[in-house]
Design a protein around this nucleic acid. Sequence first.
DNA 1: GTGATTTTGATAATCATTCTCATTTGTGAT
DNA 2: ATCACAAATGAGAATGATTATCAAAATCAC
Lengths: 123, 123
Amino acid sequence: MSKSKSVVLTTLEKTGGFVSAQEVFQLLRKQGKPTGLATVYRALQKAAVENSVDVLRKEDGEALYRLCATGHHHHLVCKNCGKTVEVEGSAVEKWANTVAKNNGFRKVTHVVELFGLCAKMLI
Amino acid sequence: MSKSKSVVLTTLEKTGGFVSAQEVFQLLRKQGKPTGLATVYRALQKAAVENSVDVLRKEDGEALYRLCATGHHHHLVCKNCGKTVEVEGSAVEKWANTVAKNNGFRKVTHVVELFGLCAKMLI
DNA sequence: GTGATTTTGATAATCATTCTCATTTGTGAT
DNA sequence: ATCACAAATGAGAATGATTATCAAAATCAC
């Protein structure tokens, strides 16, 4: 594993949640480990192929990455302030497996994210 | 409903499956009903808000649209051939609402996508 | 160390999507 | 029908994430 890649993955580990490539780029810069944007993308791409990160897309199409395997869980994210709560969902896991089986699919993974407004928002 | 929007949705109906905005644009052109690209995007955007089309993203981030007859549902997508099955998940809806309530979140929406290998794949 | 191979990063190129704004079309009242 | 005003349209520019390019720097094998 190249040095850059390990640095990128370490950053993902620290954040814990889903982060975009651009965010990783900024984080590394602030951490004093400036890394080329292209390099960040390359690292995330490889990691995705190797299944060491989960990838999902925001509504606007931007890709978000998360280190996977570290205790599977989901997120409840406030659209307004970004507050993120980790939530456990064994119900969802079971549901996903059942659905997969019923449709003859194997090696099924799933992406489940919840978005809303947290209690602080009074809109 | 504006004329353009109905033309766009008609095209989606004809194709049946998932199509990109760019493809719709080309199809309309070939059909002799040339429509501005911006207009195609606007029509699809509105339709998405109204939940009259399903939106999902290809791996490269391009958005795909499909006329959806029924209400809210999720997708089970084959990573290999792209085959997509619509799955209903009232269990998931309930779970999402409960989790949201427990955490004081309001107006919660969720993203749930399942990925796997369909029966045709013998890897 | 020397040369080959890989990795990196600055920048340019790509491409879907959104924005802008002038023009056209539809609508409603009179 | 006509006028006035709102909504829709389209051509092209602007945006922004991602990818490609390519020369310089780090790494490896010997």
